[in-house]
Design a protein around this nucleic acid. Structure first.
Lengths: 187, 187
DNA sequence: GAAATCCTTTAACAAATGATAAATAATGGT
DNA sequence: ACCATTATTTATCATTTGTTAAAGGATTTC
């Protein structure tokens, strides 16, 4: 759990009481390769921290598998659009490798917000940071060619290209697998 | 100011003291058509609520004007990526029509978070909602054709097509103005 | 370790969008 | 109201990406 608190400390320092309270609602779990951590259609009620491994959020559009995002060591995975609206998510979370996660119960966490102002502040900051990333991703998607997007990804997150099957990467980049192959062939 | 508090009440009810505190850090301003509310290169230190009018956030990519988002009556405009990181924004906010805004001082607002837990909670929820919108926008950009994106926009936010010059709409949709014209011509 | 399955690449053609230029329409300033 | 400027549309051609099919590699499973 040390790893989780090291991650959280980047946003906000916590009292021992607050840490203990978070510890109580956190459960470490091992997910085998390709298994789903959360299924489509379920409302997101858990926040996951990744100790080891890599995951993706994906959904189906016209029956085709589309990867929305990846997350790996020392990152959180959350289906934000479901967690914050309390509506069922049409997206699933899947482990791409065997993955060790820490599951944080979201309802209990929100309850802690009343008891510990510092915990609410911490997670506010955590989600603000993820909001900023999401905004930056829009720019990347909207105003770069597929080729630029691939090279940016290669440069900024080489772990993705190395660890993730290309069929997942192509939909993440918003192109077909064939198109990605063509771009890679160019060098 | 009633309009602002009606908007905020959708997220979280506030005590009279909290409302008064927000009132003290809020300044109504009138922005003339085409004028910039915030300039590029400045760090975002203000949150704007739009009483009347319509605005856009835009930036330059290779010298070309790109619209990132629009906001109109009863919405907030914020350069989130700057507000939450405290870094200068490469984006500007511009009034597309003559616009009445209420400017909320962000540093003072953040200071109120210590005094009023309810205000922190309110704005946490406000920004969570905007985070969800941003995530949904990614799906719209990434997995729909330009034609679908135009028709979705026409359907979901007709005010944009009616009130905003098409040259701004095209870059918002991620296409050229010529391409947008072609799509409109198809009917 | 062989068969079956899944992943990635390649090829050929189709469709969508971009780039440039020019024509038309709309708007703003005096 | 007129002129100058700006916005939008149309046309043509180039480029990018999609679609489909097939082949070659890699990986899993029994």
């Amino acid at each position: 759990m040390v790893q989780l608190f090291t991650f959280l400390a980047r946003y906000q320092t916590l009292s021992q009481e607050a840490k203990l309270a978070i510890l109580k609602i956190s459960t470490p779990t091992l997910i085998s390769k390709n298994a789903e951590i959360q299924a489509m259609g379920k409302t997101c009620k858990t926040i996951y921290f990744i100790k080891k491994g890599i995951t993706r959020i994906f959904y189906l559009k016209d029956g085709i598998d589309i990867t929305e995002s990846f997350a790996w060591e020392n990152q959180l995975v959350v289906r934000v659009e479901s967690l914050f609206t309390n509506k069922p998510s049409s997206k699933a979370i899947q482990a791409i490798e065997e993955t060790e996660i820490i599951a944080i119960d979201a309802s209990k966490l929100f309850a802690l917000f009343d008891e510990f102002h510092e915990i609410e502040r911490l997670f506010r900051k955590v989600f603000e940071a993820s909001h900023v990333e999401t905004i930056n991703r829009i720019e990347s998607i909207q105003f770069h060619s597929a080729e630029e997007r691939y090279h940016n990804l290669l440069h900024e997150s080489p772990e993705i290209i190395q660890r993730v099957p290309l069929k997942y990467v192509s939909s993440y980049l918003g192109i077909t697998q064939v198109s990605l192959s063509r771009i890679r062939a160019k060098g």
